[in-house]
Structures are given as structure tokens and as C-alpha cells.
């Protein structure tokens, strides 16, 4: 166990989130990155624990050398020192292709999530008269439809962890076991949700979200208080805080300008 005293309070929650997501990436994964913190997680993983992972963008860039953190998936920084530059058509075909698609892990965020990891990034309220309009799917629905597994970023708030999403933009496990197969979707579904308080997993049998780990300084009850639905907390453990080396790489190598870390 890490000595909590030394590690306590010398990192931010965003740093904890980026590292928690980076730890989910395995060496050899093809990592589909959305905008923002998912890029940092992918960059950190590549420098820390998954040097052979491939960073990949829906815009078509494959294995970019990210010397500066991109602020969008079309940022010219994603185009530098790639192995191949494809197009949108190529990038999504790579994910729809069953050989390559199952090696892809997608990292993305959303405005709402339900217990099965279904995501809404389109509207709050009625689709035809929305209270709040968001960007829409972009590539998120495609990625969630096709790839081997997805890692989701969320803020832990009651209005975001909801019983039913207002609009189902990107498919998680749909309505539970067998839901994806019934709809005609291949690929895996969500494997983890990384929040500002915790790491949530999905049960192999029920496909429902459960609490896998809480961050130091947060209690499982606090996490439940920030969700509109109940989850199993019996399997949860405290998450290891970021190590000095993880923090050094995140701060000095990945985002020295703190453009994403804030």
C-alpha cells in the first residue's frame, strides 16, 4: 500500500481522473481519443504503462506523436509524425472492421449516463424542444457501436447519473444482458466510468454499473449521494493515488501548459 500521508492532497481531481483512465489502457491497445481529458489519459498511458499503445483519432490520424496536447481531434498537433493519415471514412472503418475494431478502446465523455453505460451527448429535455442542446454524437455513437471496449469520463452528479437518459446518443449495454446482440450491435460495451470521485465498473452478468473504487478522501456513501440510481458498493476498494512518477509525466510531459489539467 502507498503511504497515504505522503500522497494526500498533492494532486488535483483532474489529475487523479487522467491517471485512473490511463491505468485502464493496456499495452497494445489502439486508443481512440475524444477531445479533452481523454487525450491526456492516452498520452499518459503511452509514457507510463502502455508504450506500445497506439493513439488514434476519428479524424484519421494514426499513432500521432503528440508533443503538445491537442485541443480538438482535428488540431494540427494530431497530424505530426503519424504513421498513416487516413480520412474519417478510414478511421471509422478501422473501428467497424471486426479484426481491428476489437483492439480499439474508446475513451469519451457525455452529459448523461445510465446504469448500463448508455450515453447522452445530444439534448437535455425533449429532443424537439430541448432545455439544453449539446454537440451531438460526433464519432461517439460510432465508436460505442463498434469497438472492443469503452472507457467513459463523467462528473459525479445526480443529474448526470440518471435512471433514463433523455436521448440515447451512444450505446452502452442498452437494456442489459443480451441487449447489444438483440439490437444487432457487435463489439464490447463500456468497461469503466472514470469520475471525479470514483471508478465504476460493469458487472459481467447483469451489465449494471457498480462501484469499483473510490478516490482517497471520498466515501462510498458520498458517491451514492451523487447518483440518481443505486449501485452495488460491496466490491469497492480505495483507488491508489497517482504516484510521483505518474504526476511528473502528466505535468511535465503531457500538459505543461495545463491546458486540459486547468
Amino acid at each position: 500500500m502507498i503511504n497515504k500521508k505522503n500522497a494526500m492532497q498533492d494532486y488535483t481531481l483532474r489529475e487523479m481522473m487522467a491517471i485512473a483512465a490511463a491505468r485502464q489502457i493496456r499495452d497494445g491497445d489502439i486508443v481512440f481519443c475524444g477531445t479533452g481529458i481523454s487525450m491526456l489519459a492516452a498520452m499518459a498511458a503511452k509514457h507510463i504503462s502502455a508504450p506500445s499503445s497506439v493513439i488514434f483519432f476519428e479524424t484519421g490520424a494514426i499513432d500521432s506523436r503528440l508533443e503538445e496536447v491537442p485541443l480538438a481531434v482535428a488540431d494540427p498537433r494530431v497530424m505530426y509524425w503519424t504513421s498513416v493519415n487516413g480520412s474519417l471514412a478510414d478511421a471509422f472503418a478501422t473501428m467497424q472492421n471486426r479484426q481491428t475494431g476489437r483492439q480499439v478502446v474508446g475513451i469519451m465523455g457525455a452529459a448523461q449516463i445510465d446504469r448500463y453505460g448508455n450515453l447522452n451527448s445530444t439534448v437535455i429535455g425533449d429532443y424537439f424542444k430541448p432545455t439544453v442542446r449539446f454537440s451531438g454524437s460526433g464519432g461517439a455513437c460510432d465508436v460505442a457501436s463498434f469497438v472492443g471496449r469503452t472507457i467513459l469520463f463523467m462528473r459525479h452528479e445526480k443529474r448526470k447519473f440518471v435512471n433514463q437518459v433523455d436521448y440515447l446518443t451512444s450505446p452502452g449495454w442498452l437494456n442489459g444482458p443480451g441487449g447489444r446482440e438483440k439490437a444487432g450491435l457487435s463489439g464490447g460495451g463500456p468497461s469503466a466510468v472514470i469520475t471525479n470521485m470514483a471508478i465504476m465498473g460493469f458487472d459481467d452478468d447483469t451489465k449494471q454499473m457498480f462501484l469499483e473504487g473510490w478516490y482517497p478522501g471520498v466515501s462510498p456513501q458520498q458517491i451514492l449521494d451523487n447518483m440518481a440510481f443505486e449501485v452495488d458498493i460491496s466490491r469497492a476498494q480505495e483507488v491508489l493515488p497517482p504516484s510521483k512518477e505518474e504526476l511528473r509525466i502528466l505535468r511535465e510531459v503531457c500538459d505543461p501548459q495545463r491546458l486540459i489539467l486547468g
Binding site: 471509422f92 455513437c141 450505446p171 457487435s186
Partner: peptide, 15 residues
């Protein structure tokens, strides 16, 4: 054709 969006509101809701 594509396999994308099966089971989602993109199929269900028409603007």
C-alpha cells in the same frame, strides 16, 4: 449501410 447507431435515439428520433 453501417452497423453504427443500432439501438439508439439516432434511429428513433427524427428532427
Amino acid at each position: 449501410p453501417t452497423r453504427s447507431s443500432l439501438g439508439t435515439s439516432i434511429i428513433e428520433k427524427w428532427g
